[in-house]
Design a protein around this nucleic acid. Structure first.
Lengths: 253, 253
DNA sequence: GCTCTATTTTTGTCAGACAGAATTTCTTGC
DNA sequence: GCAAGAAATTCTGTCTGACAAAAATAGAGC
């Protein structure tokens, strides 16, 4: 018998509900590699058997694990696969936290004022040719979209994500991705309202050039000015810099 | 009847399992304020009744929500309360992601090199007397602990968290907390190995003074130097700056 | 070997049950 | 009238057993 109940055998007097203990135990097995990433979880019945509990209890444990992102169902409604939690999984939660905290644009802006210039600087020293090519492609598509009068929001977010990716620093990317996703849409809107698409593109181009030529200082300083444009843009467009961000949010499924 | 099933009434041919739809619906109600933060969730039976499903289904939905951090049980095993997900909730997940990504100390250091000086600078302009008092108290305790030869790890992490808190910027705090929690223990160890407790305390003191006197530039620059000490310390102590971080992790309970 | 059907698993859901903890209601003594 | 204690009620955690539909597997036939 599988004793994960700290010796407390009575189902109702245990300090921790069984479904929680089981979720924890399964989590450990996954993180320790006993249940390797990519494999499928045993069926509910066999897990129930293995842990000596009923299927309902197992199911509740699985729901907990599911929401952590370490297990996920493959396409359709078949078996559960063990996976590595993805950035979007945790991004959704950070977003929720931001929204519930009534985060303002100014606060996001402060974060990005710190992070983005550093990203550009690091990218200037560490970017690969492949990274550069992706950024340049983004630049070209942005120019095309602007010429066609299209929306630049998505491309703007992408540009900054690509610069961050070029640093090769996963922690940096994780730290800024959510903030950027919430911030840049507002940024691009401000720029659109000011008819400052040209200016946005120029800044992106300058940042790219600096990164491509490996000039840390220039990359840092252009990105700094670029982010600074948002504050100035808010003033010019008479927008409330202190307004809390809004947006749809869901962490389920 | 509460139709959350997109018009698909047949329980088994629905595109999305009921427990998932219900979790989503409850999430919306919470985020929209229909179920206000601080209130308690209705009992499982009444939810089952309300959604026209069985209690098991409701329970599975609750497990999903529970893991997102927007509901949590108050002390003991009584009702579930609607809460605001706090930093620790998502911190665990970010930590897991960092660990699975084999994040190195250098990467964390890069993040903090960007964020921490900005935190200090903002704190210099926005900190309240209460914030300052807390930081000063931390300083005193750090000095006492150092004089007694105690471990400074916890106090170091706390110092930087307090500085971040003094910015009044929740997004900034959220962005740096996890990184700091993983990084500063290593920092403090390096300093301890180098017998550089004095230096750590001096830096903290200088940063505090700058913040207290509202000197943005000084605060920024002292924090910058302080963080820079880690890199130098690694060199001096002959530690591997590129080593991936390690640590225990669990997201359950 | 390969496709198409039949059988077995597996998941999602339900109804009903029960013990023990928590909560509420009701007594009863002051 | 109110507080302490007892009784009734609710609620959670867990289990059993059941069933339909989807998916996986085994067979059968070509």
């Amino acid at each position: 018998m599988n004793d994960i109940f700290n010796g407390e055998t009575d189902a109702t007097t245990r300090s921790r509900p069984a479904f929680r203990s089981i979720a924890r135990e399964l989590e450990q097995q996954i993180l320790s590699g006993a249940l390797p990433v990519g494999s499928t979880l045993p069926s509910e019945t066999s897990l129930a058997d293995q842990f000596n509990v009923s299927r309902s209890t197992i199911r509740e444990a699985i729901r907990l694990l599911e929401q952590t992102g370490i297990i996920r169902r493959a396409e359709g409604r078949n078996k559960l696969r063990i996976t590595m939690p993805r950035a979007e999984d945790i991004g959704a939660r950070i977003k929720t936290a931001f929204l519930l905290q009534e985060t303002t644009f100014e606060q996001l802006w402060e974060v990005l004022t710190a992070i983005e210039p550093m990203c550009a600087a690091i990218a200037a020293t560490k970017s690969s040719p492949d990274d550069l090519e992706k950024i340049e492609d983004n630049l070209r598509r942005t120019e095309t979209a602007h010429a066609a009068g299209d929306d630049l929001v998505g491309l703007d977010v992408e540009f900054h994500n690509l610069v961050a990716a070029a640093t090769g620093n996963g922690a940096l990317q994780l730290s800024r991705e959510t903030v950027g996703e919430l911030f840049y849409p507002a940024f691009a809107q401000v720029m659109a309202r000011l008819n400052a698409g040209e200016r946005l593109i120029l800044a992106h181009r300058k940042i790219f050039d600096a990164i491509a030529s490996g000039d840390r200082g220039e990359a840092h300083s252009w990105m700094d000015r670029h982010i600074g444009d948002f504050q100035r843009g808010c003033d010019l467009a008479n927008l409330d810099f202190d307004a809390p961000i809004t947006g749809p949010m869901s962490e389920i499924s």
